[in-house]
Design a protein around this nucleic acid. Structure first.
Lengths: 359, 359
DNA sequence: CTGTTAGCGCGTTCAT
DNA sequence: ATGAACGCGCTAACAG
């Protein structure tokens, strides 16, 4: 600043090797103060308090310079950002892809940028990302992955969430996470019950369940829903007929083989998600030579886009995935309320061709 | 600051209503200057120049206060961030979900946060997001959506990319975008040729193609690859036998019906992606009552996870989707080079059960 | 309506 | 090895 600035050519062409264009440069080019430039570009608070003429000059200068504001600087000054975080287990999983898509749709309607974090089911990573999102001053975060049924982890999660809240952050959870927060709650229990009831109505009395890691609250809820319904129907469910399918197609395929080996008389299988159902169908059809639904009926969960294309088309419990994401984002936008809100999203049984009465 | 501060209790407990904890507060609690606190927490440049004792005190204070640095402030001071952008057409599309997952995997290995933007195939939105990512000072962005074959758009894209580069940004493209940049190039042309050759080897001579919006370079390349191969094989392809399937399952289903109406003698169909192939299979099987592969052979493209579960299992051209994303992110990490680099990723024909010799 | 002046929280010289 | 002081780019008071 003390060095004599080179004589500025009036109406100098675009500055060159200066790195990112700053508001200051836009202001100079427009011949106004940076404050005015700022106001012209962002309308400050309330009314548009910049004169028509100056306003135009600023806008022109900004366009000519291809100016975009420095978001970090803006965030620092305003102490707020327009980014939200969405944390999922795995984007490649259609279940999360659908939720994320729903969330991103409304995010963009409101000019929000989303940071997507995938934990690959590692609780440690979830905590980690939450902290980083807090560091980023993300306005809010959607915890879209399943919760973990683990005391110690839940305690740490709550602590991190509290810290985030103390900083003005807002978190909305999808499903049970053991923390008090706005939450969008898919009807996992009643959905599973729906599946069981359908099969029971068809006449099935010998059930198998392909489950997932018990540590996930989603699994726990669905399993619990199925169990309760079975019990209230007076149908026994031997422990050997509940098997962990690992929440992946391949593991579920193996699990299904094991299940059928242990209980060859099974006539109905409830699979706790569609991804695994694909594996189960493959096992039944290609590994075991069992016809579905003639010999074994199968019901899935989620109604992922490919469910209708499976062989046979899968009867499954539909979850409004995109809605879950969208509603979660809505809750973010309507800001944190005094009391945590809960939105229950219902399931629907989609009848296709993987179920029929037992022989 | 002029008001007499309340007598501070020595070793005061955690400060309460102060909003986010600042480095300054950590420093005070540790009894050091903010400079030292900063160095202790980030090892500054070069050697770790903080004394063991002070270092410990700072780290303890930070932990007790649950301090996380203010990323925007850090970004402003360092004028660099650890966020990268990934722009796709639609996360719910398994093709993009897979690419994004691949990219996110390596991003996290390197401590990068990713901002995911979905354009829903709106070129305008692509430009928009690019500018916003530039504003965010994202280190780099992966343009993962297909390019658009449109002169005017390409010009504007190039301008935006140039501006981003001038700001120190780095862009890597997946596929052809008409801009000079590092690019990961899936073998769309030769992949489509592979599909055609396979069908031709089987004895097919009457082809149909379910294509997509011509404006997408991905479509253009795949279509071109198929056409060339057909031509070099001396097999005619009447214009009526190339139909736009809109890149969605439902539109493709409709398109397939139309196609078969126009050309009932078709024995082989090349579908330019697996999502559409699912629709084509449904049309053939459920709407038209045609058996695949007995009456009509079908080859898809991408080898999405569900391809093996379709009815019948889909023979398709595999693209290493996760790799595409991962390698793109790698290119970001190895920084921009003098000359733009190009990485060609090859396809592979995956034989399943949707093809056989014509009757 | 517009310009001036202070920070926002952090990294980074430059002294010490 | 540590601290003081300045600046990153922008918004928000506060004057005119």
């Amino acid at each position: 600043m003390s060095a004599p600035t080179p004589i500025p050519t009036p109406d100098a062409p675009l500055p060159r090797p200066t790195g990112p264009v700053t508001l200051q440069q836009v202001a100079e080019r427009a011949g106004v103060s940076s404050a005015t430039a700022s106001r012209a570009l962002h309308g400050s608070s309330g009314t548009r308090i910049v004169g028509e003429e100056l306003r135009r000059r600023v806008l022109d200068a900004a366009r000519e310079l291809r100016y975009v504001s420095n978001a970090p600087a803006q965030a620092l000054a305003r102490s707020t950002t327009s980014v939200v975080g969405v944390v999922v287990h795995d984007v490649a999983d259609p279940y999360f892809a659908a939720i994320a898509a729903g969330a991103m749709g409304v995010a963009r309607e409101h000019g929000l940028l989303v940071m997507l974090a995938a934990t690959f089911r590692d609780p440690e990573l979830e905590l980690d990302y939450l902290a980083r999102l807090r560091a980023q001053r993300a306005r809010a975060v959607v915890l879209a992955g399943s919760g973990f049924a683990d005391r110690e982890f839940t305690r740490r999660l709550a602590a991190e969430v509290d810290a985030y809240r103390a900083d003005g952050g807002h978190v909305v959870a999808v499903g049970e996470h053991g923390i008090a927060s706005d939450t969008v709650r898919p009807a996992n229990r009643s959905g599973a019950a729906l599946a069981v009831r359908h099969l029971h109505d068809l006449g099935h009395r010998d059930f198998g369940i392909v489950s997932g890691p018990r540590a996930l609250t989603t699994v726990r809820d669905r399993l619990d829903g199925a169990r309760r319904q079975l019990r209230s129907l007076g149908v026994p469910l031997p422990p050997a007929q509940v098997i962990d399918g690992g929440f992946t197609r391949e593991q579920a395929r193996v699990a299904a083989r094991t299940l059928l080996t242990r209980a060859p008389d099974l006539t109905a299988i409830v699979v706790l998600n569609d991804v695994m159902a694909a594996g189960v169908l493959a096992a039944l059809r290609d590994d075991l030579g069992l016809r579905v639904p003639d010999q074994v009926s199968v019901v899935g969960f989620d109604d992922l886009p490919f469910a209708a294309d499976l062989n046979p088309p899968l009867t499954t419990v539909r979850l409004p995935l995109a809605d879950i994401g969208a509603r979660a984002m809505d809750m973010i936008l309507t800001g944190p309320t005094i009391e945590p809100r809960t939105l229950d999203l219902d399931t629907e049984l989609i009848l296709r061709n993987s179920t029929m009465p037992p022989r």
